[in-house]
Design a protein around this nucleic acid. Structure first.
Lengths: 126, 126
DNA sequence: TAGTTATTACGACTCCATTCGTAATTTCGA
DNA sequence: TCGAAATTACGAATGGAGTCGTAATAACTA
């Protein structure tokens, strides 16, 4: 049996690094550390260690051609978002997507975002 | 300063017990354990311990009047769902509610659920 | 009352996430 | 070439989640 990739759920720290990788594209530890340092005070080797663990979990791939390894997200942002949301729907919303959507939309949701959602619904065949 | 309740995010195991409490209403450890046992094999003292930790975190309240303490969820299901979803939107969707909704709806979403969402949007003033 | 049963309290143990210091390795410039 | 700088590798320390065994306590019953 092949291992189910969607079973690997990134932790909070891992998601922080994935967000950077999705934004920047493939990057070295130094680049990633510099970016993460603008918002947090995290040591260089901490970032390195987390990337190594993510590599073991296959959350990232890395190019070892050069001295400084280049890391990249193994899965797309879209796919990761989908699996995170499916997880939350099953664990906290009794499996109901509509319940989640109803909770997600509140007074802080902008009119533009609501328009976006309306257009999405209109584009559905169902 | 009052402590911010929304800062406490229930873990996976805690969420399992909260779901039971929201469903059953206030209940003893025995009742909760019996319910959780229908789907998992978890020891009685494990459930007790988790409830005690949840009590320390103020995720549940308990009535110690009787020998068998009666536990109840401290916060409503709706409020907890809202804070879980806000957390996910900020950590994985760049703060965009519409992006989350777009990911949430996919081919597995039933026509009934999509209708529910349409009605929600129609009922909005925006 | 005395023993059995039910319940809570306590603490230990494992696993994993997160952090970082230090060692080993490689590269590059003087 | 050789030493400084950069990078990776390794491992230890901390803390929390989840698990459960055992002790302490309370209640019930024969």
């Amino acid at each position: 049996m092949a291992r189910d990739k969607s079973a690997v759920k990134p932790t909070a720290a891992e998601l922080t690094l994935l967000n950077i990788l999705w934004q920047m594209g493939p990057a070295t530890v130094r680049q990633i550390h510099e970016t993460v340092s603008t918002t947090q005070k995290t040591g260089y080797t901490t970032v390195l260690k987390i990337l190594q663990i993510m590599h073991e979990k296959a959350l990232v791939v890395r190019d070892e051609t050069n001295r400084a390894h280049v890391y990249a997200a193994a899965d797309s942002e879209t796919n990761t978002q989908s699996s995170l949301i499916k997880d939350l729907i099953s664990k906290a919303f009794g499996g109901s997507t509509s319940k989640l959507v109803m909770r997600a939309i509140d007074e802080s949701t902008s009119a533009e975002e609501i328009d976006d959602i309306r257009q999405l619904l209109n584009s559905l065949e169902k």
